[in-house]
């Protein structure tokens, strides 16, 4: 785990730390409470790939009773279609019962601190157009539309080639 992620960051009644293997069950539970899908294998894989890795960050928010109340995951990505090295955040979840306590904001600021210390000066993310909850959250943190645009097409018979 990076030094930055290991630093506990007091934010009122909760703190931020790096993820541990024992957090996977609680992370799965928070994600399931938001998405209505339980994906324990996916989150175990996320921990294997992003927990305790250089330039990859899996951070946890826990309350003063050591109950996990939120998480965020991101990494440094480089040279995708000419992109300078930049930070990417691709997962965030906050226990719905603890929302509006700035847990998400504190997690986001913590991962931005980690990314800054890793040497990048931009952070990006990608969201569904109709994901108003997360879109509004990231906008409130100061994020705006960037110079890249997401494209897609169906593969197989519906494809465009």
């Amino acid at each position: 785990m990076s030094t930055e992620a290991n630093q506990n960051k007091n934010a009122g009644n909760y703190s931020i730390r790096g993820a541990r293997a024992t957090d996977i069950e609680a992370v799965t539970g928070i994600d399931a409470s938001i998405t209505n899908l339980s994906k324990p294998e996916y989150w175990a894989d996320m921990f294997a790939r992003y927990g305790d890795r250089e330039n990859r960050f899996f951070l946890i928010a826990e309350d003063k009773n050591s109950k996990l109340i939120g998480f965020i995951i991101g990494e440094v990505r480089t040279w995708e279609f000419g992109s300078q090295p930049s930070g990417w955040v691709f997962a965030i979840g906050v226990d719905p019962a603890t929302r509006l306590n700035k847990v998400g904001s504190t997690l986001f600021q913590s991962i931005c601190d980690c990314l800054t210390k890793a040497g990048v000066d931009t952070v990006r993310t990608m969201l569904a157009r109709d994901d108003e909850l997360n879109m509004t959250f990231f906008r409130s943190q100061g994020m705006m539309g960037g110079p890249f645009i997401q494209l897609e097409m169906p593969l197989g018979d519906g494809g465009g080639t």
Partner: peptide, 22 residues
């Protein structure tokens, strides 16, 4: 149009006022 609508829906007054402050 969908991109324009989702952009307008994602920016609260507080967010815009904070941008102005920054």
């Amino acid at each position: 149009e969908e991109i324009a609508v989702s952009t307008l829906k994602s920016i609260t007054l507080t967010t815009l006022l904070k941008q102005m402050e920054r």
